[in-house]
Design a protein around this nucleic acid. Structure first.
Length: 324
DNA sequence: AAATTAAGCAACCGCTCCACC
DNA sequence: CGGTGGAGCGGTTGCTTAATT
């Protein structure tokens, strides 16, 4: 026996909402609120809709201050950075973009942003490979070609561009407005609630701040124990890891200047960096977790990420590395 | 002009989480 | 502590519209 359905499936209307239905729902919620019970709401209004459907319609369309239309470059960047940091946690990503809904962002990512980035990466990789092959042919013709010089066949592991400087946004910018979601997310991902991360970063110590962000990010990744790549059967989820690396790679090539921070990242040490930011005693607070999802400086070098993931992998599944 | 294909988006489905009893 | 049910989330579907043949 399965679970009882949330509504009478035979008697509820499906499909697009009519303007009348929208008006009914909106005017009721405007006057009375949701009452904390979406299931009961359609009956109260006299709508032949499932409560879940009402909730979705309200959240994605009728709610005030919903922004429709084109995404800005800044929004693109935020989405990309957050996707790399936390994956497809659309609700958390949406929390960083006022007026955008998780559904909207999800659709935008799946239908446009992903293609945009992939297209750019493929194009660049293709031209790099062409020029590499040309050089190879020239060397072969002149008899100076060495087999070790052959072009990289793997589209997902190309050489990295040089890091270039990029200005940071200020620490005051409201990237994060849902700390509890993030906290939940960390716990969900297997992270400890006692993260050993620098959280309080004095505004007078900007250089330390830059270091802190990167070491903090890596600390958090480490605290997660790489658990996001371990599936329910405690097997390493190569597909998940590959996906993250591929996307990271896409971002790196679509926006090379974002590699900025790499040097200070190395300086700060990859993990367990005690010199960056504040002491671990301060780190139990979740008051300022902004650096975790701070978009522009968050995108680390993909080789470093690869390294970290492999380390995590070796820690979680020592046999995995041996088998490679 | 009609048929076909692709893209975009709204909505649904099924699952997990979590508060409450 | 376990069961229950509503809320919320992410993946997927399918309809509509635009572009192409």
């Amino acid at each position: 026996m399965g679970r009882a359905p949330c509504c009478d499936k035979a008697n509820v209307k499906k499909g697009p909402w009519s303007p009348e239905e929208d008006a009914k729902l909106k005017s009721y919620i405007d006057q009375h609120g949701t009452g904390g019970n979406w299931i009961a709401l359609p009956q109260k209004i006299g709508l032949r809709r499932c409560g879940k459907s009402c909730r979705l319609r309200w959240l994605n369309y009728l709610r005030p201050n919903i922004k429709h239309g084109e995404f800005s470059d800044e929004e693109d960047n935020i989405i990309c950075s957050l996707y790399i940091s936390i994956g497809s946690r659309w609700s958390i990503i949406a929390a960083q973009l006022p007026g955008r809904t998780d559904n909207d962002i999800k659709n935008y990512w799946n239908t446009r942003l992903k293609k945009k980035l992939l297209g750019k990466q493929r194009k660049e990789h293709h031209s790099r490979r062409l020029s590499c092959l040309k050089q190879q042919e020239t060397k072969k013709a002149s008899g100076t070609f060495l087999p070790s010089e052959s072009c990289n066949e793997n589209p997902y592991w190309p050489e990295l561009p040089m890091a270039t400087p990029l200005s940071h946004p200020t620490h005051q910018e409201p990237w994060v407005n849902d700390h509890s979601s993030l906290r939940k997310l960390f716990i969900k991902l297997g992270g400890s609630t006692n993260l050993q991360c620098p959280l309080e970063i004095p505004s007078t110590q900007q250089p330390i701040y830059e270091n802190s962000i990167n070491s903090y990010t890596m600390n958090c990744l480490t605290n997660m124990g790489g658990s996001q790549f371990i599936n329910q059967n405690t097997q390493f989820d190569m597909a998940a890891a590959n996906r993250s690396l591929t996307v990271l790679d896409e971002i790196v090539y679509s926006n090379p200047q974002r590699l900025e921070g790499l040097e200070c990242f190395y300086d700060a040490g990859m993990v367990n960096d005690s010199s960056a930011g504040s002491s671990s005693a301060e780190s139990t607070s979740w008051g300022d977790i902004s650096s975790l999802v701070y978009p522009p400086v968050l995108v680390p070098d993909f080789e470093v990420c690869q390294q970290v993931m492999l380390q995590e992998c070796a820690f979680e599944q020592p046999s995995y590395l041996e088998s490679q």
